[in-house]
């Protein structure tokens, strides 16, 4: 288990724990179908500590690095 920020661009991983993510972000992720057990792919990261672009089920979304740090994943 590790934080999403430890992934490299192009890595695929399974989400293990979202409990430390802030409430609002968790709800939004849920809305887009990203929850525990879902497989995601880290597409790219923006420079200077900018947001992360992740893909899940053919759909892309962007979240902040600070939130990604709180998402626990498992490499697949």
């Amino acid at each position: 288990m590790m934080a999403m920020t430890q992934l490299q661009s192009g890595d695929r991983a399974k989400i293990v724990d979202l409990s430390r993510v802030s409430e609002l972000v968790r709800r939004r992720l849920l809305d887009m179908g990203v929850t525990e057990g879902v497989e995601v792919c880290l597409k790219c990261t923006m420079p200077l500590g900018g947001p992360f672009m992740i893909e899940s089920c053919g759909q892309c979304l962007g979240i902040r690095r600070s939130e990604a740090m709180r998402i626990q994943v498992e490499r697949v």
Partner: peptide, 8 residues
């Protein structure tokens, strides 16, 4: 705290 999640 500011939050940001955006669908692309």
């Amino acid at each position: 705290s500011s939050v940001f999640v955006v669908e692309l």
